[in-house]
Amino acid sequence: MFQPLNSAAQLGYRTVFNLFEWPMARAQRLVGIRRVAWLFLLPNLLIFGLFTFLPIILNVFYATTGSDAILLSQRPYVGAENFSSLLSCTDYLDPNSCRRDVFWRAVYNTGWFVVLQVGFMVLFSLITALILNRDIPLKGFFRGVFFYPVLLSPVVVALIWKWILQRYGVFNAGLEGMGFASVDWLTDADWAFFWIIFVSIWAHMGFYTLILLAGLQSIPSDVYEAAEMDGASRWRVFAKITMPLLMPTMVVVLVLSLIRAVQAFDEIFVLTGGGPGSATTLILQYIYETGFASRPQLFGLAAAASILMAVVLLVLTLLQLRATRSQAEG
């Protein structure tokens, strides 16, 4: 609603306007009114070019050159050797048979992680959204509670859970207090994998719950009333009304969470460091460690792996674009 500004605010606005008046007028005179738009875009284009576009180009050069030299001029051209090195396996189902076994282990870990994390997270988000969409007491409070972890920095999330799960952490202290034996939550391969999935679901679920909740609320209530008059059972209302009408939102949530799961890194890196061994090493961590943390630094290999990952993400992103477009049209 329009509210008349008080005189102090008006004065403030006018001062700011006057401040921009002169340089704006001058810029327009110099380059013409239409080209001023480019002037506004320039800073962003520069930043984008320098920090996004240029690295992408450089990445291709690194992926097709060898040695551990960092300057491109000192790196010999090797063609697709980095890619073939990454992709050479005698049995693709057995990482140990691959030349780059850690890469393949990371690929498999990421695959499992994506399937389980996305699957369960979407399922739990859906259930939570369905519950929060009903008339329950303290609805606002619970909506806040489920969204809260999304606001935390990933490192904070990981540190909180590390504090809970480590050998002498809160969880084990609790278990021992109740007379149970403590468990190596983060140093047992299976448990560690379970916990990286659990923690990343905990950290991101609120976001998808919120999207699904918005999707649920966009379903008109009169459709439900019509179904009630039509004598549909609760299950039939869910299966025949809610789910089909929520589908466009579900597709967006699925693709979005898939993309983010493929990119998972920070929480897991801080929580388990990829261990024990390489049990929780995901593809992004492999790239980081190959390119920067290991000696020698295999820039070429890391660049090639990141290009392979980019291809996967590109496919997922295109899917997402299609999904959002069909939702906008639907």
């Binding site: 008109p220 009169d222 459709v223 009333e225 019509a226 179904a227 008059m229 004598g231 549909a232 009304i241």
Partner: peptide
């Protein structure tokens, strides 16, 4: 609602 043996036509049609 369904047990009362009534049918309703809504203002917004409320079609599925």
């Amino acid at each position: 609602a369904a047990e009362r043996g009534l049918a309703m036509v809504f203002q917004t049609y409320a079609l599925y």
